[in-house]
């Protein structure tokens, strides 16, 4: 086990819209459980919260014009340097809320590669329980995150049930172990280039330019023609 000197940076993304919000409460419960577990194990966690309610207009602006406002820019910085993420959404109409999905839609595809993520959702009825596994998990698979095995779903009746606390505990230890293992950091340091990137992606941090590609050869007067017969 790595015992880091620096606390783990945990980003909590909540798409709850009321204040107080049960979606945010669920995210906070998960975050504080991770913090407590880390402390028991001699570590520490520093939490940054990205509450999407305050970013709503910037998110819609980003969708229609690609213009990133200052709050979006800060949120991207927070996610880019996070060691782990808690992503918590309310379920509307049998899907994670549009605000939640839209936020992740406008992020660069490579911003969250290999980062451990706990997926959480709240709903007014237990009938929405599979939204986390069937919809949110595929979004985060596309973003190539490392989602933990346990999803955390809380319908109205779950708030007073001890089982919710147990699921939170399971998800928290799963995330903590993934952070401790240094998995994301290692994937990103050893294999970053093998994923697709664009210049300036990963929140503006991906600035490596491969000068030996076929296109670069073409840019510098070379030919795009394939040799006519194999040498």
């Amino acid at each position: 086990m790595n015992t880091p000197k620096e606390p783990f940076r945990l980003a909590v993304v909540s798409a709850g819209t009321s204040d107080p919000s049960s979606t945010r409460m669920l995210a906070d419960r998960i975050a504080s459980r991770i913090g407590a577990l880390a402390q028991e194990r001699g570590g520490a966690v520093a939490v940054d919260v990205v509450d999407l309610r305050g970013l709503a207009t910037e998110i819609t602006t980003a969708i229609v014009s690609q213009h990133m406002g200052p709050k979006m820019t800060r949120a991207i910085e927070v996610l880019g340097r996070a060691d782990g993420i808690v992503a918590s959404a309310p379920v509307y109409k049998a899907a994670p809320s549009g605000l939640f999905s839209s936020f992740f839609h406008v992020l660069d595809n490579d911003l969250l590669i290999a980062k451990p993520v706990i997926l959480a959702a709240t709903a007014g009825t237990a009938r929405h329980a599979l939204v986390v596994d069937e919809q949110m998990r595929s979004l985060f698979a596309y973003l190539r995150t490392m989602t933990v095995p346990t999803s955390v779903f809380a319908a109205t009746e779950d708030w007073n049930a001890s089982e919710l606390g147990e699921r939170i505990g399971r998800a928290a230890i799963e995330l903590l172990l993934l952070m401790e293992s240094g998995f994301a950091e290692q994937v990103r340091s050893e294999s970053w280039k093998s994923y697709q990137h664009e210049f300036g992606s990963a929140g503006g941090t991906e600035l490596d330019i491969d000068l030996s590609s076929d296109l670069m050869r073409l840019a510098t007067g070379g030919s795009a023609l394939k040799p006519k017969r194999p040498e």
């Binding site: 014009s65 690609q66 213009h67 664009e198 210049f199 300036g200 330019i209 000068l211 296109l215 670069m216 073409l218 840019a219 510098t220 007067g221």
Partner: peptide, 23 residues
Amino acid sequence: IRTPEIAEQAAFYGNGYFANHIF
């Protein structure tokens, strides 16, 4: 705006490089 190959081609030939600088 964001294509390194175009900037490389401009540099290779000693031509000018222009950034649209609007969005």
